[in-house]
Design a protein around this nucleic acid. Structure first.
Lengths: 236, 236
DNA sequence: TCCTATAATTTGGTCAGACCACCTGACCAA
DNA sequence: TTGGTCAGGTGGTCTGACCAAATTATAGGA
């Protein structure tokens, strides 16, 4: 006998599904304020507790933002809270931070390759801004500012790749690395001498992207990451 | 003025944090049965509703499995329920399925490269098993069996890479692709003629991994994925 | 003795109602 | 204008209850 198993869907799951559906059909969108829990409970004909359980799940998923006393708001799919929550677990499961750095190299070289291939002028201008800020911060010996520009450069690079998945994956890895102890220490290790080298490397990556040379852009990124990694390891 | 915003931590978040902590310290581990909600509520000195909200979040995260009437169990970090939930949303946000296929190519070629480099004999034997099953299913004209072996091969390949992040990322992408409409149709499109070609391609990948030739293994994988992709697009 | 069918217990799923804490905006007074 | 107060809206939490599924204990029959 071949029958379909009865799906014992729980109330909160059905609620989530409906919200996902509403998001998909555009009936609700990022920034919208959701009705109060009590009203929703009435509309869905379920208890407020069930609505709240659905909200907790959607909060972890990263599609709503619930503010005590201020209502609930739809947000863009945001994986940061999720990653932050599981990060401590992650460092138990994943023994080798090495793996994460390898993975980042993979993502960023591909991002550089795609950025060069796509060559969107608007995006490249924003990369230029970030590099410019690095130059300024080097002159002013403002390490913090340089740090910020560095992070921005790498984030922008993912945007330049124009591959949505790559962008999201990049966010995940950055988020995980920020939760890493070693990277935390790494920030402080940036000296003025290193800042100069880093600036040159970023300039080179940018130049090659501007020239539309995928192969060379990827190689420049590879060199840059190898340098960063080597620096981190030497200080251990 | 530089001040830090006050973080209003909610009860359910504290509960999750404690559970993550217990998982990290090994006081609870995968397979363990958690105490009943009512008991936990007593121990944590919070209401059952708060415990339940924490459970909903942990369920979405993929670290517990809650069975009605049967208790709650700790599981290995399982991203499948999470991905399945957001998949419908994803296909709205990510306009181009192209991006996902590009990303998969990136991951799988890297996995092939690493698998060849690591060359763990135990892992390679399991790859051989999968290919063997593809041979058998081809002789028996059992497309379904071949399909299953194919999936297993790609999953095993990620394991061969021995990079935890790559393995997890592979799971995510596979899960997303399984939720894709086009791939669903794609399964049926496998004819006997194609099965023969696919078998050859997998054999070639395996051979090159066995020879420890990273470069060639990656290229073989690239060829394979290009073929798969081309086949999918032709049928549109 | 062993197995099975049934009853009792355990445990998660849901609901209703209550109270508190926080946010917002309106109104008032210095 | 500035700051304080207050009321209403809204999320955060708790309590207690009942239902339904799964498990366990139990009694009866082979």
């Amino acid at each position: 006998m071949d029958v379909n198993p009865i799906s014992m869907k729980r109330v909160y799951q059905s609620v989530i599904e409906q919200f996902i559906g509403l998001l998909g059909s555009g009936q609700i969108k990022s920034g919208d304020r959701l009705p109060p829990e009590r009203i929703l409970a009435e509309k869905f004909k379920v208890s407020r507790a069930s609505i709240r359980e659905a909200f907790r799940a959607m909060e972890v998923i990263g599609i709503i933002d619930v503010r005590a006393g201020g209502g609930s708001y739809v947000t863009d799919l945001n994986i940061v809270p999720f990653i932050t929550t599981i990060a401590p677990l992650f460092w138990r499961t994943v023994s080798r931070e090495e793996d994460l750095l390898d993975f980042r190299r993979l993502l960023e070289t591909e991002a550089a390759r795609l950025a060069a291939a796509r060559g969107n002028p608007e995006h490249i201008d924003r990369l230029e801004d970030a590099v410019q800020q690095m130059r300024v911060s080097l002159r002013q010996a403002n390490l913090e500012m340089g740090e910020e520009a560095d992070i921005r450069f790498h984030k922008l690079l993912f945007l330049c790749s124009e591959n949505e998945i790559l962008i999201k994956a990049g966010e995940c890895v950055s988020c995980l690395l920020e939760n890493s102890v070693r990277l935390g220490r790494a920030r402080i290790m940036k000296t003025a001498a290193q800042a100069e080298i880093l600036l040159e490397q970023h300039e080179q990556i940018l130049d090659r992207i501007r020239q539309g040379d995928s192969q060379q852009a990827a190689l420049a990124m590879e060199d840059h990451l190898a340098f960063v990694r080597q620096t981190l390891q030497r200080k251990d």
